[in-house]
Computed example of a mutant assay.
Amino acid sequence: MTVRCNTPLLSFSWLRFISRSSRTGAIVNKAAYMGIGIDLDGNKDVLGIWDRGE
């Protein structure tokens, strides 16, 4: 008897980068958050990318 769980593994990570503001021209730190899912076969899918909104 084989029991398989169909629930994928979810991971949330973030990436910090430096960008130039389009309004003021100042250099600012930004962050983007990523939701990543891994299915039972080991395939990775990006579920979404969100910015911090600054």
Rank of each mutant, 00 (worst) to 15 (best):
T2P: 09
A32K: 13
T7N: 09
D45E: 12
W14E: 15
A26Q: 14
S13F: 00
W50R: 10
L47W: 09
L10P: 00
Y33L: 11
G42L: 11
D39F: 05
R16C: 03
R52A: 14
G42T: 05
D41T: 12
L10A: 05
T7E: 14
S19N: 00
R16P: 08
L10I: 03
R16V: 01
A26I: 02
R52C: 06
G53E: 13
T7G: 03
E54H: 05
R16F: 01
R16T: 02
V3Y: 04
V28C: 08
G53Q: 10
W14T: 08
F12C: 02
V28S: 04
P8V: 07
A26T: 06
D51L: 05
I27P: 00
I18R: 14
L10W: 01
K30I: 01
T7C: 09
P8C: 05
N43I: 14
S22A: 13
S22H: 06
G42Q: 08
K30N: 15
A31Y: 07
I18V: 15
R16S: 13
D41W: 07
G35F: 03
I36P: 01
S11K: 07
I38F: 10
S19W: 04
I36Y: 03
S21P: 02
D45M: 11
T2D: 07
L10M: 08
F17N: 08
G48T: 01
I18P: 00
A31D: 07
N6F: 10
V46N: 13
R16G: 09
A26S: 08
G35M: 11
R4N: 06
L40R: 00
A26M: 07
G53M: 06
E54G: 13
P8F: 06
G25S: 07
K30Y: 02
R16Q: 13
T2H: 05
V28F: 03
K44Q: 12
L40T: 00
L40M: 00
C5L: 09
S22F: 02
D41Y: 08
R52K: 10
W14D: 12
N43E: 12
G35N: 06
N6V: 01
I27S: 09
V46Q: 09
Y33R: 10
D41S: 15
R4S: 08
N29Y: 06
R23D: 07
V46A: 08
G37E: 15
N29G: 08
I38L: 14
G48W: 04
I36L: 15
L10Y: 01
V28M: 13
D41C: 05
F12L: 01
G53Y: 09
